[in-house]
Amino acid sequence: PEVLSKLHLLQYRWVLWFFKNDRSRAWQDNLQLVAKFNTVEDFWALYSHIKLASKLSSGCDYALFKEGIQPMWEDNRNKQGGRWLLSIAKQHRHIELDRLWLETLLCLLGDCFEEYSGEVCGAVVNIRTKRDKIALWTSEAENKAGVMFIGQIYKERLGLSTKTVIGYQAHTDTAAKSNSLAKNKFVV
């Protein structure tokens, strides 16, 4: 009990997922649950043990979601939702990708979105040949006040310049446009 009382509990229990693209298997079979945690200490133990995002092979993802929410559009908590999306050119992978992904994780774990933290579902980093992506997923794309509040805090926390614009897309729009980027519903 004394040891437990010294650990720093998080507001939510989180689940880290790993996706490795293997075209011979169904999409869901390529998704693996890595670990669950609900303390700051357990997060760092896990983070220190796994590869940095920039060291993953092309086609791999990490996803961190609240327990009970699957990292896919089809989940009930995601299907009306959307994502704030960062697209990172390959030449910035080794400078910026790991920093931006860690900042994203710290936003989630620190519960930094105030009264809208309940809207946040999780985040995903996709490692791809041309451009990597980091996305913060929220549960209700029509909740403009919540989505905009989260986007403004997120952009500030990432340290992006005021000239940089990031967009939010509804998952329903992304799903309908699998070969090109969906239109931005909101920008900050």
Partner: peptide, 20 residues
């Protein structure tokens, strides 16, 4: 109460010795 932690606090804990 709510467990909100700012980034500096979270980062500090990364390097704290384990409480064992």
């Amino acid at each position: 109460g709510k467990k909100q932690y700012d980034r500096e606090f979270l980062l500090d804990i990364q390097f704290m010795p384990a409480c064992i």
